[in-house]
Simulated scan of single mutants.
Amino acid sequence: MNFKPIAAAALLAVAAWGSSASATVVLYDNFDGEGPGDDLVWNGDSVFVPTSPPSSVDLIGVGGSYDFLPGNGSYLDLDGSSGSGLNPAGEITSISSFGAGTYTLTFLLAGNQRGAANQTTKITLGDWTTSINLASGAGFAAQAFTFTTTGGSLVFTEMGPSNQQGNLLDEVKLSAVPEPTTWAMMIVGFGLTGSMVRSARRKQAFA
């Protein structure tokens, strides 16, 4: 008996299981595609747009006068220069909407770097939300959350009132995590493939 088709099926099962068991990136934005940032009012890109209303957000960073944390390319000041007294101070919303499920969200967040009071950034996706309060001198730090949500758009909100000195955001990545039932189904499929191989070998040995 030719075992090659069965072996190939087993390899495909392994590959499919490995692929499904790892998270899939569904959103990524490092804000570098917009060019040098110099306290420019940001109109969005292909991933995020400022929520309207409220919202004033600035692009700052490399090549500009306001590169507070060099080496990070361009990044967003979530409380932009064209707003004053707004509440919330600024907000961005993902263009894409995401279904119900489990996700891992990572991003870099820093304080305002201008000596202002602590600022709070709220992050929301569907019925999941969290808030981060940072002092002015806090540098970029990696934030990571894994959560289950009803689904919707990913939103970063800078709580007001606006003083034009917001927390800084960079390197946003959202990944979809496969459900445990998906993993279980793939493991069962792999087990059945292995049983087929063992059964075929027994039949060949008996013959």
Rank of each mutant, 00 (worst) to 15 (best):
V62Y: 11
F145I: 08
G71E: 06
A205E: 11
N133M: 08
D79G: 09
T149Q: 01
W183T: 15
Y103T: 01
F156Q: 06
M1G: 13
T121F: 03
G99V: 14
S153Q: 13
F206Y: 06
I92D: 08
V47T: 15
L78G: 06
V47Q: 15
S22E: 14
S82N: 14
A144Q: 15
V177D: 08
G194Q: 13
F140W: 01
L78Y: 04
E179L: 12
K122F: 07
R202D: 02
A141W: 00
A7T: 09
G191I: 07
D79P: 07
G85F: 04
A116W: 00
T150M: 03
G189T: 02
A176K: 15
A7Q: 13
F68R: 09
S131R: 06
Q204I: 08
V47W: 00
G80P: 03
G191S: 11
S56T: 14
D127P: 03
I95Y: 01
F31A: 00
P36N: 15
L11I: 11
S55L: 05
S74V: 00
T157I: 12
A205N: 10
A144C: 05
R198Y: 06
A205C: 03
F3A: 13
A116H: 01
T106I: 09
S97D: 07
P54H: 07
L40W: 07
A9G: 14
G37M: 10
S195Q: 13
L154T: 00
W17N: 11
